[in-house]
Write a protein that binds this DNA or RNA. Structure first.
Lengths: 193, 193
DNA sequence: AGTTTTTCTTAATCTAGTTCAATGCGAAGG
DNA sequence: CCTTCGCATTGAACTAGATTAAGAAAAACT
């Protein structure tokens, strides 16, 4: 893990002294995941908030008929977790899986609270992180209810070009709220023009 | 406005001294809105984060064909704004309208920054507010892509029974991502059983 | 290197939800 | 008090997207 790059990323939100950064990094536990391995399985309590440092993870819900629905992708410098499970201690409703070989830094719920108390600047950091995440979730909801699938796919390509290269199409279909078959149809139609 | 009730609500998140609460309240500007009046019009910059103290507001996006798509409802103790516009100073993409006679307390962007500096506890307060909002947005996205309209309507009724009484059905349909006609059909079907 | 598993594609059929148009009705506002 | 406007409902025709099934291609394990 490149701590230089990580520190630079944090500087976009808050200014940390070297000791503070040191302390923060000491709370993080690295974990490597081969492609298709699970970071979190449905039913298990989510114990960590995980910062992706390499690769790409996918967070999905499995419905009563066994169909998977993608809630979010997480690439480098993105946090991922089942927030509901993490905050309430309830069993996870989501699965988190590495789509390619990946690495994360895990921060436990308890260490997170500790961090808030030791370095209140992190309240600000996560306030901004959550605020940004909220805005992009709002945009996604609007696009889902206001635009047809083809338009949403175009938007996705524009917004996350790197993710499109990285993950299987079926996950992208699922993220868009359509079947892989229908995404395939859309792609053929778009290619023809 | 009942400041007692408001203070009690804040105590769920952070502990404020009387002076701190006093200072915070001094930054808030009350505004009354008759039913169907706008708090924010599309194209205008969103200048305030507004805390609803009475009534109910609706935040919606208007697409290229003039159709309205509800992003959120806001009742007592909920904050509302076009976050993107508020944070970036860009023209608003959303309209915010009172659905019934309502009252809000407005906090300007500048005063919000001031508040963070004067009373860092508010970083924590809004961190929790955004975190909770994010979780409910995640749930909404999952329900939208994983479940059919009737199921989503049932969930809505369970989760927000008070809102269902308060707002016109067409807004609920829009929130669910369906047409008013189809919601009408669903209701008839549900009534028959 | 061969076999299994996963992913993508294509086409036919089906359905949840839309569109359009007409009607009735209650509530706002002059 | 009346008239306009916003809201809900109904039904018929339509379409975006789902489902099912089958085959091809690619990737993953042995």
């Amino acid at each position: 893990m490149d701590y230089q790059a990580l520190q630079a990323n944090f500087r976009r939100y808050i200014q940390l002294t070297d000791e503070e950064a040191q302390y923060f990094f000491s709370l993080l536990k690295p974990q490597k995941l081969k492609a298709r391995r699970l970071l979190l399985d449905i039913g298990d309590p989510c114990l960590y908030f995980s910062l992706v440092t390499e690769g790409c993870l996918v967070n999905y819900y499995t419905d009563d008929n066994g169909f998977e629905h993608v809630l979010q992708f997480a690439t480098t410098f993105w946090w991922t977790a089942d927030l509901q499970s993490l905050m309430n201690g309830t069993p996870s409703m989501y699965t988190i899986k590495a789509v390619v070989d990946s690495e994360v830094l895990r921060l436990s719920r308890a260490d997170m609270e500790l961090l808030y108390q030791q370095i209140p600047k992190f309240e600000r950091y996560f306030r901004i992180i959550f605020q940004n995440a909220l805005m992009s979730h709002q945009t996604r909801i609007m696009q889902n209810i206001a635009y047809p699938a083809e338009e949403r796919y175009r938007q996705f390509q524009q917004t996350y070009p790197h993710i499109e290269q990285l993950v299987p199409q079926k996950y992208i279909a699922s993220y868009l709220g359509i079947t892989p078959e229908f995404l395939s149809k859309i792609r053929r139609k778009m290619a023809k023009k």
